[in-house]
Nucleic acid binder design. Structure first.
Length: 205
DNA sequence: ACAGCGATTGACT
DNA sequence: GTCAATCGCTGTA
């Protein structure tokens, strides 16, 4: 599905503007599909096309960390759109989210899967796996492949070495499949998971 | 202060 | 398909 951008400039030149993240959580979830998540570290650049996302809302969404009151952990979900929200889960994994909501309301988008795009060797080393499908097809896998950890929490995605670029002109059009979210107990009735149809780099169909 | 448990993964049957 | 690993956040006291 991906066609590499010809004569590639600095990816950072294509970083999404703040207004992109102010469209509302659900809309941002859909519109992040096909965008490029990039993390530059001293080891090198790793990047992947976003193929699967989930929206987590505010008080009306029982599955969301922001379903109840503000706490030290979830306060970022109430803060400015366009920041990163990274949390540690199951004593083992990090999950990467983008804060996105209409002003005053809490919300964030969980990035669940990527299609590897750049820095594949480095991803293979970090994941200790060789198959492309084992690198970034799950929220905990992609954070490991891109080395997103607790130090990446609460970053401004316009101002840090972790950012999301719009390379839409390098990608064919695609259809979006909408389903209920994965791994949650409450709120399964809401259809807030989105993924690119026929893309093999998703955590589940 | 502490028990309960989670927006997951990988190993194993 | 099942299930253990593992840690820090949160609600309750």
């Amino acid at each position: 599905m991906v066609k590499k951008v010809k004569q590639q400039k600095n990816l950072k030149d294509y970083t999404l503007p703040y207004r992109f993240y102010n469209q509302g959580t659900e809309k941002v979830s859909r519109n992040l599909l096909g965008k490029l998540l990039v993390h530059k570290t001293t080891e090198g650049i790793t990047a992947g096309i976003i193929t699967e996302t989930e929206a987590y809302l505010g008080k009306d969404d029982p599955a969301s960390h922001a379903a109840r009151k503000k706490t030290p952990r979830n306060s970022i979900m109430f803060d400015k759109s366009g920041k990163s929200y990274v949390y540690f889960i199951y004593g083992n994994h990090y999950c990467f989210n983008v804060v996105a909501h209409i002003k005053g309301i809490a919300g964030a988008v969980l990035i669940r899967s990527l299609e590897p795009y750049q820095g594949i060797k480095l991803m293979q080393k970090r994941r200790k796996k060789n198959k492309l499908k084992d690198l970034t097809t799950g929220p905990g896998k992609l954070t490991q492949a891109l080395k997103i950890t607790r130090s990446c929490n609460n970053l401004d995605l316009k101002k840090s070495s972790l950012y999301i670029a719009n390379i839409g002109f390098g990608i064919k059009s695609f259809k979006i499949i909408r389903t209920s979210r994965i791994g949650i107990k409450n709120g399964k009735d809401k259809l807030l998971r989105f993924y690119i149809k026929d893309n093999q780099y998703v955590s589940r169909k």
